[in-house]
Protein backbone atom coordinates (compact mmCIF):
# COMPACT_ATOMS: atom_id res chain seq x y z
CA UNK A 1 0.00 0.00 0.00
CA UNK A 2 1.50 3.41 -0.98
CA UNK A 3 2.19 5.90 1.86
CA UNK A 4 -1.10 7.47 2.86
CA UNK A 5 0.30 10.91 3.66
CA UNK A 6 1.92 11.14 0.23
CA UNK A 7 -1.38 10.13 -1.35
CA UNK A 8 -3.20 12.76 0.68
CA UNK A 9 -0.68 15.45 -0.27
CA UNK A 10 -1.09 14.71 -3.95
CA UNK A 11 -4.85 14.44 -3.68
CA UNK A 12 -4.96 17.97 -2.28
CA UNK A 13 -3.50 19.37 -5.48
CA UNK A 14 -5.43 17.29 -8.04
CA UNK A 15 -8.89 17.71 -9.46
CA UNK A 16 -11.14 14.65 -9.18
CA UNK A 17 -10.83 13.81 -12.88
CA UNK A 18 -7.01 14.07 -12.87
CA UNK A 19 -6.70 12.17 -9.62
CA UNK A 20 -8.02 8.84 -10.89
CA UNK A 21 -5.55 8.75 -13.81
CA UNK A 22 -2.56 9.97 -11.85
CA UNK A 23 -3.26 7.54 -9.03
CA UNK A 24 -3.60 4.68 -11.53
CA UNK A 25 -0.14 5.50 -12.96
CA UNK A 26 1.53 5.85 -9.58
CA UNK A 27 -0.08 2.76 -8.09
CA UNK A 28 0.64 0.56 -11.11
CA UNK A 29 4.31 1.55 -11.10
CA UNK A 30 4.54 1.16 -7.33
CA UNK A 31 2.94 -2.29 -7.23
CA UNK A 32 4.31 -3.77 -10.45
CA UNK A 33 7.84 -2.37 -10.55
CA UNK A 34 8.94 -0.61 -7.39
CA UNK A 35 7.77 -3.04 -4.67
CA UNK A 36 9.05 -6.22 -6.33
CA UNK A 37 12.25 -4.62 -7.66
CA UNK A 38 13.40 -2.38 -4.80
CA UNK A 39 11.56 -3.48 -1.67
CA UNK A 40 9.03 -1.59 0.47
CA UNK A 41 11.36 1.10 1.89
CA UNK A 42 12.83 2.20 -1.44
CA UNK A 43 9.41 1.90 -3.09
CA UNK A 44 7.92 4.19 -0.45
CA UNK A 45 10.78 6.67 -0.90
CA UNK A 46 10.16 6.65 -4.65
CA UNK A 47 6.44 7.19 -4.10
CA UNK A 48 7.12 10.12 -1.77
CA UNK A 49 9.56 11.67 -4.19
CA UNK A 50 7.13 11.37 -7.10
CA UNK A 51 4.27 12.79 -5.04
CA UNK A 52 6.22 15.78 -3.73
CA UNK A 53 7.70 16.56 -7.13
CA UNK A 54 4.27 16.31 -8.77
CA UNK A 55 2.63 18.76 -6.40
CA UNK A 56 3.70 21.89 -8.28
CA UNK A 57 2.75 20.56 -11.73
CA UNK A 58 -0.65 19.36 -10.57
CA UNK A 59 -1.39 22.44 -8.45
CA UNK A 60 -0.59 24.82 -11.29
CA UNK A 61 -2.64 22.70 -13.72
CA UNK A 62 -5.51 22.67 -11.26
CA UNK A 63 -5.38 26.42 -10.77
CA UNK A 64 -5.21 27.08 -14.51
CA UNK A 65 -8.05 24.73 -15.24
CA UNK A 66 -9.89 25.87 -12.16
CA UNK A 67 -13.39 27.22 -12.20
CA UNK A 68 -14.14 30.89 -11.66
CA UNK A 69 -14.86 30.16 -7.97
CA UNK A 70 -11.11 29.91 -7.23
CA UNK A 71 -10.45 33.30 -8.81
CA UNK A 72 -13.36 34.89 -6.99
CA UNK A 73 -12.25 33.41 -3.68
CA UNK A 74 -8.74 34.78 -4.11
CA UNK A 75 -10.11 38.18 -5.17
CA UNK A 76 -12.21 38.19 -2.01
CA UNK A 77 -9.14 37.35 0.06
CA UNK A 78 -7.01 39.98 -1.70
CA UNK A 79 -9.54 42.75 -1.28
CA UNK A 80 -11.22 42.18 2.09
CA UNK A 81 -8.64 39.96 3.82
CA UNK A 82 -5.94 42.53 4.63
CA UNK A 83 -8.43 45.09 6.08
CA UNK A 84 -10.05 42.52 8.35
CA UNK A 85 -6.73 41.01 9.37
CA UNK A 86 -5.04 44.35 10.07
CA UNK A 87 -8.01 45.53 12.15
CA UNK A 88 -7.93 42.31 14.17
CA UNK A 89 -4.18 42.68 14.67
CA UNK A 90 -4.57 46.30 15.76
CA UNK A 91 -7.32 45.32 18.21
CA UNK A 92 -5.00 42.66 19.63
CA UNK A 93 -2.11 45.13 19.97
CA UNK A 94 -4.39 47.67 21.68
CA UNK A 95 -5.49 45.01 24.15
CA UNK A 96 -1.85 44.70 25.26
CA UNK A 97 -1.43 48.42 25.93
CA UNK A 98 -2.65 49.70 29.31
CA UNK A 99 -2.66 53.43 28.40
CA UNK A 100 -4.45 53.71 25.07
CA UNK A 101 -4.60 57.51 24.83
CA UNK A 102 -2.26 58.80 22.15
CA UNK A 103 -1.48 55.31 20.86
CA UNK A 104 -2.05 55.51 17.10
CA UNK A 105 -1.26 53.34 14.14
CA UNK A 106 1.94 54.14 12.33
CA UNK A 107 2.59 54.24 8.61
CA UNK A 108 4.01 50.70 8.81
CA UNK A 109 0.47 49.38 9.26
CA UNK A 110 -0.64 51.06 6.06
CA UNK A 111 2.42 49.84 4.15
CA UNK A 112 1.88 46.26 5.34
CA UNK A 113 -1.77 46.40 4.44
CA UNK A 114 -1.05 47.79 0.96
CA UNK A 115 1.66 45.18 0.38
CA UNK A 116 -0.76 42.40 1.35
CA UNK A 117 -3.39 43.81 -1.03
CA UNK A 118 -0.84 44.00 -3.84
CA UNK A 119 0.64 40.52 -3.35
CA UNK A 120 -2.71 38.79 -3.03
CA UNK A 121 -4.04 40.88 -5.92
CA UNK A 122 -1.24 39.70 -8.22
CA UNK A 123 -1.89 36.10 -7.16
CA UNK A 124 -5.63 36.52 -7.85
CA UNK A 125 -4.85 38.15 -11.20
CA UNK A 126 -2.89 35.10 -12.36
CA UNK A 127 -6.17 33.15 -12.14
CA UNK A 128 -8.05 35.69 -14.26
CA UNK A 129 -8.26 35.87 -18.00
CA UNK A 130 -8.27 39.44 -19.41
CA UNK A 131 -12.04 39.32 -19.91
CA UNK A 132 -12.47 38.05 -16.36
CA UNK A 133 -10.87 41.28 -15.11
CA UNK A 134 -13.95 43.19 -16.27
CA UNK A 135 -15.83 41.43 -13.51
CA UNK A 136 -12.88 40.81 -11.20
CA UNK A 137 -11.92 44.46 -10.60
CA UNK A 138 -15.43 45.70 -9.65
CA UNK A 139 -15.80 42.60 -7.48
CA UNK A 140 -12.49 43.38 -5.76
CA UNK A 141 -13.59 46.96 -5.11
CA UNK A 142 -16.92 45.80 -3.72
CA UNK A 143 -15.24 43.22 -1.48
CA UNK A 144 -12.71 45.82 -0.29
CA UNK A 145 -15.48 48.21 0.73
CA UNK A 146 -17.37 45.39 2.42
CA UNK A 147 -14.19 44.37 4.24
CA UNK A 148 -13.74 47.99 5.32
CA UNK A 149 -17.23 48.19 6.77
CA UNK A 150 -16.95 44.73 8.34
CA UNK A 151 -13.69 45.75 10.03
CA UNK A 152 -15.21 49.12 11.04
CA UNK A 153 -11.95 50.70 10.11
CA UNK A 154 -11.73 54.49 10.20
CA UNK A 155 -9.00 55.09 7.68
CA UNK A 156 -8.66 58.18 5.56
CA UNK A 157 -10.47 58.30 2.19
CA UNK A 158 -7.18 58.78 0.33
CA UNK A 159 -5.98 55.46 1.75
CA UNK A 160 -9.02 53.73 0.30
CA UNK A 161 -8.46 55.36 -3.06
CA UNK A 162 -4.91 53.93 -2.96
CA UNK A 163 -6.21 50.47 -1.94
CA UNK A 164 -8.73 50.39 -4.79
CA UNK A 165 -6.08 51.51 -7.30
CA UNK A 166 -3.59 48.94 -6.02
CA UNK A 167 -6.20 46.20 -6.28
CA UNK A 168 -7.01 47.11 -9.90
CA UNK A 169 -3.33 47.42 -10.85
CA UNK A 170 -2.23 44.21 -9.13
CA UNK A 171 -5.07 42.21 -10.71
CA UNK A 172 -4.04 43.54 -14.14
CA UNK A 173 -0.38 42.74 -13.38
CA UNK A 174 -1.30 39.17 -12.38
CA UNK A 175 -3.33 38.67 -15.55
CA UNK A 176 -0.44 40.08 -17.62
CA UNK A 177 1.99 37.69 -15.86
CA UNK A 178 -0.29 34.80 -16.76
CA UNK A 179 -0.33 35.86 -20.40
CA UNK A 180 3.45 36.16 -20.41
CA UNK A 181 3.93 32.72 -18.90
CA UNK A 182 1.49 31.26 -21.44
CA UNK A 183 3.66 32.49 -24.29
CA UNK A 184 6.44 30.26 -25.55
CA UNK A 185 9.71 31.10 -23.87
CA UNK A 186 12.17 32.97 -26.00
CA UNK A 187 15.43 31.25 -26.73
CA UNK A 188 13.96 27.81 -27.21
CA UNK A 189 11.77 26.66 -30.00
CA UNK A 190 8.57 26.38 -28.16
Amino acid sequence: MPPRTALWLLRLTCSTSDWQWLLAELETEYIQHMLPGRGPKAANRWFWSQSVRSVWAMASRNLREGEWEYALLLILLASAGPSVFMEAWWAYLLSLVPEKAGFVRGADFMVLSLAAHALLGVAAGTLCRPRGLLLGIPAAWAFALLGQSAARSLTAPWFWAVVLSILALSLCAGAALRRLSDRPASGRFA
Binding site: L10, D18, W21, L22, E25, L26, T28, E29, Q50, R53, S54, V55, W56, A57, M58, S60, R61
Partner: peptide, 28 residues
Protein backbone atom coordinates in the same frame (compact mmCIF):
# COMPACT_ATOMS: atom_id res chain seq x y z
CA UNK B 1 0.71 5.43 -20.62
CA UNK B 2 1.93 8.21 -18.32
CA UNK B 3 4.52 6.12 -16.48
CA UNK B 4 5.84 4.54 -19.67
CA UNK B 5 6.23 7.99 -21.24
CA UNK B 6 8.09 9.15 -18.14
CA UNK B 7 10.37 6.09 -18.25
CA UNK B 8 11.04 6.51 -21.98
CA UNK B 9 12.09 10.13 -21.49
CA UNK B 10 14.32 9.19 -18.55
CA UNK B 11 15.87 6.30 -20.50
CA UNK B 12 16.67 8.30 -23.62
CA UNK B 13 17.50 11.73 -22.22
CA UNK B 14 18.51 11.03 -18.62
CA UNK B 15 15.91 13.58 -17.52
CA UNK B 16 14.17 12.26 -14.43
CA UNK B 17 10.77 13.94 -14.45
CA UNK B 18 7.90 13.69 -12.02
CA UNK B 19 4.82 11.80 -13.15
CA UNK B 20 2.73 14.90 -12.36
CA UNK B 21 4.66 16.96 -14.91
CA UNK B 22 4.32 14.23 -17.54
CA UNK B 23 0.63 13.76 -16.87
CA UNK B 24 -0.08 17.52 -16.93
CA UNK B 25 1.75 17.79 -20.27
CA UNK B 26 -0.06 14.79 -21.77
CA UNK B 27 -3.42 16.25 -20.79
CA UNK B 28 -2.50 19.71 -22.06
Amino acid sequence: YGMEVRREIALRTGRDTAIGAVYATLER
